[in-house]
Design a protein around this nucleic acid. Structure first.
Lengths: 152, 152
DNA sequence: GAAGAAATTGAAAATGACAATCAGAAAGCT
DNA sequence: AGCTTTCTGATTGTCATTTTCAATTTCTTC
């Protein structure tokens, strides 16, 4: 693990620990296990994905606990909950300084991340017009990826 | 009803009728009733909303029929299906020439529509970078409306 | 380090939106 | 009108998610 990654991970862990302390919650071995697996995850996984991945090494951890813990991560800001309209909630590790949105291929399920600061800026302008205070947003482009465009 | 509105409604009805004919479906009194109620709707209603509204004058129309018919409207392009993450699908009448996205107040539920051609354009540019072909998109800004900002 | 209060866990059951089923009714072609 | 196909609506099924609750674990306080 390189230094940058270590710092990045420490941040997430610290945020979580602070949140747990502040809310009077408890630090359990399950939460630590799930946190580690979460931080080591590919992006855009569902509760089920993580649950089955954990089952290999930690067969005692229940689905409900994984689910509750992911919700907790979202609450304390280290996870973002995604919904690509396929009836399954997805999550991704989140760090404050880089925001991105998604392109979703409706044929093969490929997910591409994109960043476009100008769009973010225009969003803010739109919100300002209505005296609206943005807390979060969702911006997803659905369609065909380059591979699937060729095939069809 | 003014002339413009009449023309607009006629368009929606015509699109639906053409779709029904093309697909070998049938024109039933229930579908007509639901279509009328749909076109006369405020925006962003759920299946349940429309079902209960219809029940007053048409107590025989079942929930499943309302649900299937709204899906049909979405299929033929006169409705857009929305999902604001509250676990209920919503619908709005749609006409081809004006696209809009939404601001959603997480406190009072207020929904504001907005149009920002520049964002649409930037979206297209992003997609082009990845040789991605956009079929549809979802862009929602969640936060506090001006009223709720003052109260909190 | 033990005791007690409070939170957590995990299996199971509940919930809730949506989708599927199916027998009877209606539509629309000939 | 007769016949085939689709539609309707009450009910049931499905599936992700949420809740329940008794047993367990954590963490503070002595």
């Amino acid at each position: 693990m390189n230094r940058l990654l270590r710092v990045y991970l420490m941040d997430q862990v610290t945020i979580f620990n602070d949140y747990v302390r502040r809310k009077g919650l408890k630090n359990t071995s399950q939460r630590l296990t799930i946190l580690e697996a979460f931080l080591g995850s590919k992006l855009h996984f569902s509760t089920e994905d993580l649950y089955f991945r954990l089952r290999k090494d930690h067969p005692k951890i229940g689905y409900a606990t994984v689910h509750r813990t992911l919700k907790l991560f979202a609450e304390c800001g280290i996870a973002r909950e995604l919904d690509f309209g396929d009836g399954q909630a997805r999550f991704e590790p989140l760090n404050a300084d880089q925001h991105h949105d998604h392109l979703v291929c409706t044929n093969c399920g490929l997910i591409i991340e994109f960043t476009e600061p100008q769009i973010e800026k225009l969003q803010e302008q739109v919100a300002a017009q209505y005296n609206f205070k943005i807390e979060r947003h969702r911006h997803e482009l659905y369609g065909l990826c380059s591979k699937c465009t060729k095939l069809s």
